[in-house]
Design a protein around this nucleic acid. Sequence first.
DNA 1: TGACATTAGGTGTTATAACAGGTATCATAT
DNA 2: ATATGATACCTGTTATAACACCTAATGTCA
Lengths: 155, 155
Amino acid sequence: MTSTLQTELRQTRPFPRRTTEAMLSILRTAAVLDHQLDAALRPHGLTSTQYNVLRILRGAGTEGLCGREVADRMLARVPDVPRLLERLERMGLIARERDPADRRHVTGRITRKGLDLLEEVTPDVDAVEQARLGHLSGPALAGLIRGLAAIRQGR
Amino acid sequence: MTSTLQTELRQTRPFPRRTTEAMLSILRTAAVLDHQLDAALRPHGLTSTQYNVLRILRGAGTEGLCGREVADRMLARVPDVPRLLERLERMGLIARERDPADRRHVTGRITRKGLDLLEEVTPDVDAVEQARLGHLSGPALAGLIRGLAAIRQGR
DNA sequence: TGACATTAGGTGTTATAACAGGTATCATAT
DNA sequence: ATATGATACCTGTTATAACACCTAATGTCA
């Protein structure tokens, strides 16, 4: 029996274990999704990392978040948050301000321009999501979500 | 109901759609796995991309593969395959040779040293796989593999 | 108060990813 | 035989990621 992934990666041998196939399936699927998202965001001048930050800061509202809090909410661990935020500030999408209460913190807030850009980008991102995941049944989605959570949790 | 992912990313709001939660779950889980793999490979001086290339070339045996064929088999699309292979050659893990039949092709082959390194690394990689996926049931793994394939396929 | 640890950012450097061309080789067709 | 196009690789450049180290601000405790 030849698996789909095996064909995609032009492997001649079947995977040694189901766990191996599942792990590679996750990594491969994420790469495909990330590539699709980047392609959807590129015309708007955003990378998927930057898009992620903007969504996080939109969720935080007017209170904003400091760099470490942003890092905690990112999908992937990103070192060098300062320069990431600095780039977004140069683009005018966020504002940064030194917290007067604790001067170690730099609070980031999304700007009007950042909110507008998110609005503009949303349909394209949703289109990717729907094209890839829209045809899955409710139980299939629930199963995926549950299984992936168990993997992140680990034994 | 608060989802696991929502807690992990410190989100205050539930996800708007199940498709959104599933997509972010995939991206998040892949990031966690990739991070674990990188941590396991680092002591051996390999990145996960390089590890992937070595496995591909091991699978190809003594015939080897040209750069484009390697690229086709990678989990993530990687431009700049020439320099990636060049680095592996400098490390002595692969050998490159201009194909005499078609001088456009550069055939890459894994070396003895590369094979030895793969052997050395395997237990650590398998440990990550088992720690994260070892406790899932057979049907759960099968469901994941099937669902993820459907997502890569798209509608 | 003063020493010390902790936390959050910043900075400097290097390596790699990403992108845009450019060149050599081969296949195809006139 | 020559022109054309396609393929595979290489090269130069830029931006970003990754890493290590450093500084400022705060909290803690003798």
